[in-house]
Amino acid sequence: MGEAGPGHELPLRLFAAFRAAVDAVHDDLAAHGHPDLRPMHGFVFQAIGTRGTTAVELGARLGVTKQAAGKTIAALEQQGYVERAPDPRDARRKAVRLTPRGRDVLDRSARTFARVRAQWAEQIGPDRLDALEADLAALAPGEAFRLDAPGWFGPDR
Rank of each mutant, 00 (worst) to 15 (best):
L139H: 12
V105E: 06
R13T: 06
Q123K: 12
V82L: 02
L106Q: 13
A21W: 01
G33Q: 10
L136A: 14
R13W: 06
R108S: 09
A121D: 05
L29E: 08
T72R: 09
A16N: 03
S109I: 06
A137M: 05
D87T: 10
L129M: 01
G142L: 14
P86K: 11
P86E: 08
W152L: 13
Q123D: 13
D90H: 10
A69M: 03
R92L: 07
D127L: 02
D104L: 12
P6S: 12
A24N: 04
Y81M: 02
Q67W: 06
D135L: 01
T99P: 04
A31P: 01
A68P: 06
G154K: 05
K66W: 11
D87E: 11
E77Q: 13
F113K: 08
A85S: 07
G5E: 06
P150N: 09
L147K: 10
F18D: 04
P126V: 00
F43H: 14
D148N: 09
L14T: 12
H8W: 12
D130F: 02
D36Q: 15
G80M: 10
L147I: 07
Q78T: 11
T54I: 12
G5S: 08
P86I: 03
G63Y: 05
G125I: 01
A137R: 15
G59E: 07
G7Y: 00
V116G: 03
Q119S: 13
P100M: 03
G63D: 06
E77D: 12
D104G: 12
A149K: 10
R92D: 11
I48H: 06
P11K: 07
V22P: 05
P35Q: 12
V96P: 00
D90L: 03
A131M: 07
E133K: 02
T65H: 11
S109Y: 08
M40W: 11
R93W: 11
L62T: 03
A114D: 13
V22I: 03
D27H: 04
A16M: 02
A114R: 15
E83T: 15
D28I: 00
R92P: 05
E133M: 01
L58H: 13
F153E: 05
H8T: 10
E57R: 07
A4L: 15
P86M: 07
R19S: 04
F15Y: 08
R128L: 00
H34F: 14
I48M: 04
M40F: 10
E57F: 00
D127N: 10
R92I: 00
V44N: 06
G49M: 02
R128K: 06
V44T: 06
F43A: 14
H26A: 10
H34Y: 06
G52T: 08
L10W: 00
A110F: 13
F18A: 02
L106F: 06
E83V: 14
P88Y: 01
A16D: 00
F15S: 01
A110K: 13
M1H: 08
A144V: 15
A55M: 15
V25H: 02
G125K: 00
A137T: 13
P100D: 08
R92N: 05
G80Q: 11
V44S: 03
A137Q: 14
Q123F: 03
A144K: 13
P39C: 02
L14N: 04
R38C: 00
